[in-house]
Design a protein around this nucleic acid. Structure first.
Lengths: 245, 245
DNA sequence: TCTCGAAATTAACCTGCGTCATCACGATTG
DNA sequence: CAATCGTGATGACGCAGGTTAATTTCGAGA
């Protein structure tokens, strides 16, 4: 099922089979997208939202000179622009980073769900609030961590999220991003991200080669980035021991 | 009415009189709080949410060494921790900055609303997503602006939000924050915020004295901070000409 | 196997902001 | 009135990270 990974392993919001079926029935179309494709521009009026099935997507704000700040990175299972359902117009752009497969859910379907299934509505609301919690962790990262800490924090977060999606074993994962992308995430330049990667490599914390990440010392990396996964609302059963998928 | 300022002048989510009455009826208590009072700690399990009636509040994350990053500032009319209704546990602390008056809404009331009034539920959801949009603007601010730009952007944002609350005439407002607070918002040190304030004063953009802000050149200040208020979802009628309240 | 373009890497230089220290001012309290 | 405290203001100095510009590596395609 296309929604298999949605809200998987999140604390207190397990989807009932009936709810998952309803959501699945709301999908109007499954589409594949090329890498680096912008699917939503800030200001567009939207009548559908996008559930990410495979690949990596991002949301970002460009400044006046074209410098880009990523405000979110999405992994499979994320309902990328579910917030467009209440908002209708977004304040930022949405794009694929890698090739991606997405499921389209028309807002008319979400409207019906909202009127018929209040508990499922609450879970959808919850999903958008996890994204907000991640925004806050990113604010902490940008406001209070140095360059090495920022990259370490991001890699720990992404690792944890990919573990939930079954796409990391807790140490190795394919990250569809290059060093310039990391720079746009961490508020740095690509040159300095390169220096950071070298430092992480030399300290034997983490290696990054052609968008493949291997975390050599998870605890040390988390400490360096002051990473505490509480904000991801991971199911208690999994918080201790990640799934060996 | 206590909820008068809630969702006021926001695009596409005008509360019906009946909805406002229902929300008002959900208030269990109105309370006054002393300045610098922490009302929620990260990890607390919550069974109520807080609507801010008067005063300034903040949400923040402290790092390991005690350095603080503010992730939100709230003005009257904001439903400060409405996101605790779906989330139940927060990832950050919530506190007053100034003395404040708040209305308490038990989650049992929100639960009832969720089951009875789907359209009001959507508007509550919308309110939490505006906070998320503000988080994203803050990410842009921290990731892509220099010190002067960050402070300018924050002052423009806060001015716009206080205009909506009827607490700024568009040029002057009481900001219940000192320079150290601004530093914790903008990811700077209080020393450097002081340098920034001097620069803004000398460039005749803005003056700040004992938490009173006067914007001398609104357009120039907005340009300096690359401030575009689209993310505040202000009602089109007001976007052009702020209310003269 | 060769070519080409994207990405990674590195060096040299510079600056914005942090750090540390001190001082001034006004409000509050004993 | 003196003492204290919160807040703002300022100077000297150092460094993390930006800027610019080459150079190298590597995978994809011909």
């Amino acid at each position: 099922m296309f929604t298999d990974r949605f809200l998987r392993f999140r604390r207190g919001v397990k989807l009932e089979p009936e709810e998952r079926r309803r959501l699945e029935a709301g999908i109007s179309e499954v589409r594949t997208l090329a890498p680096r494709t912008t699917i939503v521009k800030a200001g567009d009026v939207l009548s559908q939202s996008t559930l990410l099935i495979e690949g990596i997507m991002s949301r970002f704000i460009d400044d006046r000179r074209g410098l880009r700040q990523l405000v979110a990175v999405h992994v499979p299972g994320d309902f990328v622009d579910l917030h467009a359902f209440p908002l209708k117009v977004l304040d930022h752009d949405v794009a694929t980073m890698t090739a991606a497969t997405v499921a389209i859910v028309p807002h008319a379907q979400l409207d019906a769900i909202m009127h018929e299934m209040p508990e499922l509505t609450r879970k959808l609301w919850f999903a958008t609030l996890i994204d907000a919690a991640i925004h806050r962790a990113w604010l902490f990262r940008l406001g209070r961590l140095d360059a090495i800490g920022r990259v370490a924090h991001f890699l720990c977060e992404t690792n944890a999220r990919l573990v939930l999606a079954g796409l990391s074993d807790g140490r190795r994962f394919a990250l569809g991003l290059n060093q310039t992308d990391l720079a746009e995430i961490c508020g740095l330049t690509n040159v300095h991200v390169n220096r950071v990667m070298r430092a992480l490599r030399e300290e034997r914390l983490c290696v990054f080669r052609s968008s493949l990440v291997e975390i050599l010392a998870p605890e040390k990396l988390a400490a360096r980035g002051q990473f505490d996964p509480a904000y991801l609302y991971i199911d208690d059963a999994l918080a201790e021991r990640p799934p060996s998928v």
